[in-house]
Write a protein that binds this DNA or RNA. Structure first.
Length: 465
RNA sequence: GGCGGGUUGGCGGAGAGGUUACGCAGCGGAUUGCAAAUCCGUGUAGACCGGUUCGAUUCCGGUACCCGCCUCCA
């Protein structure tokens, strides 16, 4: 059995991964709030934990891993979006979930075993809140139910902070009815304009954190193996989840290994709407970037380091994947074992850059079969991969396709004459114009190829008709 | 203010206390009418200052700079 090591945020150390039950390895990852298209940052945990999911399935068996990732479909951001647009909340969340599936499918992410929606687990949340009140960890005041952080001495363990330090930071919500400024909401009242559910504390809706505690408990049990998400969730979201779950079920231990991926940047800067470098996965796909390229770029940086998205990395990935694909097309190859080095690298705290290096070595050795099969562990299917140039070409209209075909024939003719006469003036003129239009002209002894590049501009071909 | 991370060659980005990371770009060569593509070869590192060591880019301490979280955020 391969030994997997994972960096556990709880201990700040790389630890040997030992599942509670090797026949049912359980992982929970925090999913999106569904009010808008997934941006590039949303994609990172999806891809990181998709690789972990694949690795766990590889090591423990496909049927031995349960992976749950939630949809937060009750949230004030969604309410705000509904109020802005006048649309129904359910309509917005349904649409956004469908988009999310489309976009993440395009990145090659496997669907998790469970994709629970918060609104389907309100009863479980209410039950957990009642349990917390009964055990003296939560209190009702002014129509709210709040978690009492002072009742849980270990609060702050995950994020390495103390309640007193955080209060010194003094960036906590002002709410006079809180016993302690750090207390957080489990349940809050809804007026008639807001979505709400009947509860022992009146009509209301859950606070943000309780859903993950309730759903992980329902689907994976009171204790399970891995809990993951973005680093920004470490505090307060995960800290609060731990407080809720461990106080409701003190002997269970909740999640044992906590994994956090670092943030995404764009061209060296934090992605933000004000900087104008904010974009969604759909934007990139629409620009013709293959899902595999987005995935490759993401995985070329280790998950615990900030990942900087740059155009040059995307181009590089596109080129490398194209080369790998050419090799497996030429050589074919039978089913092979996944390369042990790739497994070893991924088992070492998901060292995806190392795994990519190992794949590159397979390419250099011309080991097409191993390359193809080992790519699957990273979620890349080289057989179905289409480079950006091919995707862009597919989208071109028939008239342009015909024009390119005609031009190709013409280049062949002109070249034939030029070679016969040893006069290349006409040929060079034609080639220059094609190059100016963004077309790469490749000539071998046997054949001519016209490859439209990213700067391809069909309007510049008009003169050549 | 609190907590955490980073600083590697032109760019991206790893592992390893002493032996080529890898990719892209560059350079030289093969090939080509010229190119492109491809193939072969190749130079350039480890923020700064100390310490441990026979030996550190790799371990420890400090300095500088950068970044993230602490507020909805993956």
């Amino acid at each position: 059995m391969v030994t997997i090591r994972l960096h556990n945020t709880l201990t700040r150390k790389k630890e040997v991964f030992e599942p509670l039950d090797a026949s049912d390895v359980r992982m929970y990852v925090c999913g999106p709030t569904v009010y808008d298209r997934a941006h590039l940052g949303n994609a990172r945990p999806v891809l990181v934990f998709d690789v972990l999911f694949r690795l766990l399935r590889h090591v423990y068996g496909e049927g031995a891993v349960t992976y749950a990732r939630n949809f937060t479909d009750v949230d004030d951001k969604i309410n705000a979006r509904a109020a802005e647009t006048g649309r129904e909340i359910g309509e917005i969340t349904e649409e956004t979930i469908a988009w999310y599936h489309q976009d993440m499918d395009a990145l090659g992410a496997l669907r998790p075993t469970h994709e629970p929606r918060a609104t389907a687990y309100i009863a479980q949340m209410i039950a957990m809140i009642e349990r917390l009140i009964a055990r003296g960890h939560a209190y009702e005041v002014a129509g709210h139910v709040l978690f009492d952080v002072r009742s849980y001495p270990a609060y702050g363990r995950l994020s390495g902070r103390s309640v007193d330090d955080m209060i010194a930071g003094a960036r906590v919500e002002v709410a006079p009815f809180k016993r302690d400024p750090m207390d957080f909401v489990l349940w809050k009242p809804s007026d008639a304009s807001l979505p709400g559910w009947e509860s022992p504390w009146g009509r209301g809706r859950p606070g943000w954190h309780i859903e993950c505690s309730a759903m992980s408990h329902e689907l994976l049990g009171a204790s399970f193996d891995i809990h993951g998400g973005g680093l920004d969730l470490q505090f307060p979201h995960h800290e609060n989840e731990i407080a809720q779950s461990c106080c409701a079920f003190p002997d269970a231990g909740f999640a044992r290994y906590w994994l956090h991926n670092e943030m995404v940047q764009v061209e060296g800067k934090k992605m933000s709407k004000s900087l104008g470098n904010f974009f969604t996965v759909r934007d990139l796909l629409d620009q013709g970037w293959p899902g595999e390229v987005i995935r490759f770029v993401m995985l070329s940086t280790h998950y615990r380091k900030p990942m900087d998205w740059t155009e040059i990395k995307a181009q590089d990935a596109d080129t490398r994947l194209s080369k790998w694909q050419e090799l497996i097309r030429e050589c074919g190859g039978e089913e092979m074992e996944t390369d042990p080095q790739v497994v070893a690298d991924l088992s070492d705290d998901l060292n995806t850059p190392g795994a990519i290096k190992a794949l590159q070595d397979l390419y250099s050795k011309k080991d097409a079969a191993s390359l193809r099969n080992s790519c699957h562990l990273l979620g890349i299917d080289l057989l179905s991969f289409k480079p950006r140039s091919a995707l862009l070409q597919e989208r071109r209209s028939d008239s342009i396709a015909t024009l390119l075909k005609d031009l190709k024939r013409r280049v062949s003719e002109v070249r034939g004459e030029a070679l016969a006469k040893k006069d290349f003036a006409e040929m060079d003129k034609l080639k220059t114009r094609l190059t100016d239009a963004g077309i790469e002209v490749r000539m071998s002894k046997a054949d001519v190829q016209l490859v439209p590049g990213p700067n391809f501009d069909p309007t510049k071909l008009e003169a050549l008709k």
